[in-house]
């Protein structure tokens, strides 16, 4: 069964706001039973993607499916199987924590009051406290509890760790891991915290300027990105010689290169520029940052440097 393996599927998903493309022809499959991290800088189109997935925004072109159901016509039944945490842990300020529970309980049949209560306790929120009056982290806690206690099959989280202190952040990761361990639960999480990604994710997807650049298993991704350090001048001319160059970063005397799918050809090209080039082990952060840094900056900065010399 097609639907069994893939929890989220998009095909050529495109959204424009006016003349500006927020998302371009995005084709992505999020497999079931895994944790996928969606990474990108602010404004890269992550939130737009999530709103499109949940049918809260119509696409300009293309389509998306959630648990086998078209996003634009999600049935209430499918919605109850999807937990969604919107960016910023929004809650209506007049609500008390118990109102939040009521709101969810009445519209999600598998509501887990026990889980909700224990999460509230963890974040130190009393059921009678008003959302307007609790701290930001506590609000995040209520918001998370509201989402997790609906016992979803698929969890879509938009920057869940925003505003959380380290303890709460760790608790969040633990909670999500515990959730993911139950069979066949899928998580798509948008986050800026790459350490958490490393702990959490099976897969990583990187979106930059509305385009999907990476969609791969986390370890495969790291295996496929290589780094070099060289002590030589490096400009646009040199950059053009290296296939799959993602990013080059100049420190005082060295240039760090990050390359996708390096092979012997890459090695030769790098060595041609500088004989002393060394292969570098990359952290996940290095690899991801290479993608997130605006591509234009690479050329322009090196060009600028060249002109100075």
């Amino acid at each position: 069964m097609r639907e069994d393996k893939i929890a989220i599927r998009t095909r050529g998903l495109t959204r424009y706001f006016g003349q500006k493309a927020a998302l371009r022809s995005l084709t992505l499959d999020v497999p079931r039973g895994q944790v996928s991290a969606l990474v990108g800088h602010n404004g890269a189109g992550k939130t737009t993607l999530i709103r499109l997935l949940l049918g809260l925004l119509p696409p300009t072109r293309g389509c998306a499916e959630l648990l086998g159901c078209d996003s634009q016509s999600l049935t209430p039944e499918v919605r109850t199987r999807v937990g969604y945490l919107a960016e910023g842990h929004f809650l209506w300020g007049w609500m008390k924590a118990r109102d939040a529970a009521r709101l969810q309980r009445e519209t999600f049949p598998r509501w887990d009051q026990h889980l909700f209560d224990s999460m509230l306790k963890f974040f130190g929120v009393s059921p009678d406290s008003r959302v307007r009056q609790i701290s930001r982290g506590q609000r995040a806690g209520v918001s998370l509890a509201m989402t997790l206690a609906t016992d979803p099959e698929l969890l879509v989280l938009d920057d869940p760790s925003m505003g959380l202190d380290p303890v709460a952040r760790r608790a969040l990761v633990e909670g999500l891991l515990a959730f993911a361990r139950r069979d066949d639960r899928t998580i798509l999480v948008c986050t800026h915290l790459l350490d958490d990604v490393e702990r959490l994710a099976d897969r990583i997807a990187i979106v930059s300027s509305g385009r999907l650049l990476v969609d791969s298993g986390l370890s495969e991704f790291r295996d496929r990105i290589g780094g070099w350090t060289l002590e030589a001048e490096f400009g646009a001319q040199q950059a053009a010689q290296i296939p799959g160059l993602i990013d080059s970063r100049q420190t005082r005397e060295r240039t760090h290169l990050v390359v996708a799918d390096p092979d012997s050809e890459t090695e030769t090209a790098v060595q041609r520029i500088s004989g002393t080039a060394r292969r570098e082990e990359l952290t996940l952060e290095d690899a991801v940052l290479a993608y997130l840094r605006p591509a234009a900056m690479v050329g322009s900065i090196s060009d600028a440097l060249e002109n100075v010399r």
Binding site: V35, E174, R199, A201
Partner: peptide
């Protein structure tokens, strides 16, 4: 796998792998 994943706060797939 489960114990270790919980202990280290890791995705159990990572440990299993």
């Amino acid at each position: 796998v489960r114990q270790l994943a919980e202990e280290l706060v890791l995705n159990h797939n990572t440990v299993a792998k």
